[in-house]
């Protein structure tokens, strides 16, 4: 599915990467633990409840281009500046991690493992 479909399904906010919303996403990985994210060899959509600079830095190191922040947390200007520098798409939604994953799984997004 496209990022735009994900945004619509979750009524999500697009913070950065508006120009990349038509890109296709097939897999997602959900974690609040950045060391776990750093073990990934693929590059799925990251769904996370962690909303700080390390979320963006971890995506940069793990070469992840898309992050979806859940539980109604709002990324800071500093986070978004770094995300823009790295040409990342940052989304956020008000739903919990469980609900977010449930909606996206039901819509056909595949788990990484």
């Amino acid at each position: 599915m496209t990022l735009r479909e994900i945004v619509n399904l979750l009524d999500a906010t697009v913070h950065t990467g508006e120009n990349r919303l038509d890109e296709e996403i097939t897999q997602a990985f959900a974690s609040d633990l950045m060391s776990e994210v750093l073990t990934l060899t693929d590059t799925p959509l990251l769904i996370t409840g962690l909303c700080n600079m390390q979320t963006i830095r971890t995506c940069d190191m793990a070469t992840l281009d898309y992050a979806l922040i859940v539980r109604n947390k709002k990324p800071t200007d500093e986070m978004l500046e770094l995300a823009e520098d790295n040409d990342m798409v940052i989304l956020s939604c008000r739903y919990s991690m469980f609900r977010t994953c449930g909606i996206l799984y039901q819509a056909g997004l595949k788990p990484l493992y």
């Binding site: 633990l33 950045m34 750093l38 390390q54």
Partner: peptide, 16 residues
């Protein structure tokens, strides 16, 4: 841990 680290994966991740 609040920063998303501290789960005992740092040194093992380095080694890998």
């Amino acid at each position: 841990r609040d920063m998303g680290f501290g789960a005992g994966m740092g040194l093992p991740n380095m080694q890998k």
